[in-house]
Design a protein around this nucleic acid. Structure first.
Lengths: 346, 346
DNA sequence: ATGAAAGCGCTAACAT
DNA sequence: ATGTTAGCGCTTTCAT
């Protein structure tokens, strides 16, 4: 698709040339005034500034970038714009990046590897200085090109397949272990796990934590109690239904993210399961609505914004030219006990 | 802040020149092959494509844009990245824009007018082809510059001060009217409104709808029942507390957005107010968690993604060069009755 | 301290 | 059908 009138569409904007002419100086002087790279006499500086003001002149970033200048743009790619965990991370990233004078460009893949790819190549063409990535569940082919493209990359929450980069993540193993241990101490024994999709690092780690807590309490693991869902609300509901349809339904469930928890809760309500009497629930992520749910939700809270802030700082370090080995920062989760699980009448 | 080693940082990337040399053709031929503007002989085309592949060449968008080419980037600015209503709108925008081959660059102001300003000038420098804007509550000074900058702009949800542009919005007047009328039909008479901040168009319209419904039922409006809050969770809680502290607290409340509703609900729970027996609640926006709240929430649902889609289409029209007068598209809201209001024992 | 001029990577007008 | 070249708006030597 081409624009209909490419020529006419050109907006008449002030350029460095028009400013120079109006101020009666050379373009170099204007550039110097604006970038502050070199001293300019007070009189000329004044004149230039005045004209810039009057013409509402704004240097063209493309032209600037072209001349080999510093790139001040950071790409951030997340799989889902509507997942509050992810937007929370972005919020943290931005707080730090903005402070450091970088612009953030946000892309999201919506679960389509080709979109992630499109954003990747787009950001490259746009000259992004660095990349913060919450990897989607592709086969890693996406990242092959990224490896060749030598800009700093930091991954958040999940390990990108086939890419050796810095990683910031919560300790999902410990989170799952704590949650299940808490449920056990409440008297629940038949405990299920609604986990993320197969293939994610988070998914593996949570499963490991779940196993550990069970084995610690000498409770055998039942395959039917571990379900792989899709991080989405509908998936959570489907998983819960599947569990409740079992000949021997679980007494408690640990759900692997915020949206799936919402779905699971809804499904339980529909079937008139009483929580926490008939079924205890612990969810991952403490969301603004967690306390207002029916019943108020016990959660494993991740330090969401901190994940983003740390990721941004790691990137800034690399951007500053620090060469150090690839690093993993693992932040601790926190159990927040509310009303969705309680003493089980075992 | 300057990068420490600007020179060394330049990533060695294939350019059109290196491709041309490697393929033994001129740069013009490479350009022609890649843009498809002109026919190129099969043999050369083959050769070029092969080299492009091998060198993993990616045309530099900045250089392209600089040459007066079409701009394919659309800026989207929202006040709050963490408000699911807003991310829902962006989702709708993107669906359409992506289809049309545009890239979306997302910025958010976080309630700071200077950040909105920064994004505006940034997008301008970056050469954005158009802008979709959910205005923040500034004094309109931000948009003065925007008016001079002659690119298409579409506003969503709120009327930007001092800017005459296309607008897409829900019928907030009708939404508020319906909600209050429903509460009245349920037997509630003392009905409060937790509204948005003063100065927003939405705020005015909802107040008008609220007034209309009351006057229709011949219920006098009480000033103390109308509270201006801030669209955030804490604000909603504070407003609810203020209402419940009144000598004569309301029997029902209409809350002006999703996050404030969460806060209001939490505050009511803390004070052990029974809903809907003691207090009926209707909230704006149907969110994924609305049905799982305690109690399930009656809401005025906005066609969130549709708002975004329509906005994107309006922008695409203008981008295609269609000149038509400024237009307002007002979409209908929908009342969804759940359990947070019910027959009131009047 | 200031100006002239080269050149960033690319496309398009002009040659051939 | 292909190559040569000018120039997009800017920064940055290199002169002066």
């Amino acid at each position: 698709m081409r624009l209909s009138a490419p020529e006419k569409l050109r907006v008449h904007t002030a350029t460095i040339k028009s400013v120079a002419k109006a101020a009666g100086v050379s373009t170099a002087t204007v550039s110097r005034v604006l970038t502050g790279t070199d001293l300019v006499g007070d009189e000329l500086r004044e004149r230039v500034l005045k004209v810039v003001q009057k013409l509402n002149y704004q240097p063209n970033r493309m032209a600037r970038g072209l001349r080999g200048g510093q790139r001040r743009m950071i790409g951030v790619i997340i799989p889902d714009l509507q997942n509050p965990f992810l937007t929370g991370v972005v919020h943290g990233v931005e707080a730090v990046l903005y402070e450091a004078g970088y612009t953030l460009v946000l892309g999201h893949s919506g679960g389509f590897p080709e979109r992630e790819q499109a954003h990747l190549t787009g950001l490259r063409a746009e000259g992004a200085a660095g990349l913060i990535l919450v990897p989607d569940n592709g086969d890693g082919a996406n990242y092959a090109a990224l490896a060749a493209w030598e800009i700093p990359v930091v991954a958040v929450d999940r390990v990108p397949k086939g890419l050796k980069v810095d990683l910031v993540s919560t300790d999902h193993y410990e989170g799952a272990r704590q949650a299940v241990a808490h449920l056990i101490s409440d008297g629940y024994r038949d405990i299920a796990l609604i986990n993320g999709p197969d293939g994610f690092s988070v998914t593996r780690e949570r499963l490991a934590g779940y196993r550990e807590a069970l084995s610690q309490a000498k409770i055998p693991l039942r395959e039917a109690y571990v379900i792989h869902s899709d991080f989405r609300q509908l998936g959570g509901a489907a998983a819960m239904n599947q569990l409740l349809d079992l000949p021997k339904p679980p007494q408690a469930v640990l759900v692997g993210n915020n949206l799936m928890t919402l779905g699971a809760l809804e499904a339980a309500h529909k079937r008139r399961v009483r929580i926490p009497e008939d079924l205890g629930i612990v969810g991952f992520d403490d969301m603004p609505w967690a306390a207002s749910l029916r019943p108020a939700l016990t959660v494993i809270a991740q330090p969401i914004e901190e994940l983003g802030r740390v990721a941004a700082r790691l990137l800034l370090d690399r951007l500053a030219g620090k060469h150090r080995p690839v690093k993993q920062v693992i932040l601790p989760p926190k159990l927040i006990v509310r009303a969705s699980c309680g003493s089980h009448p075992a």
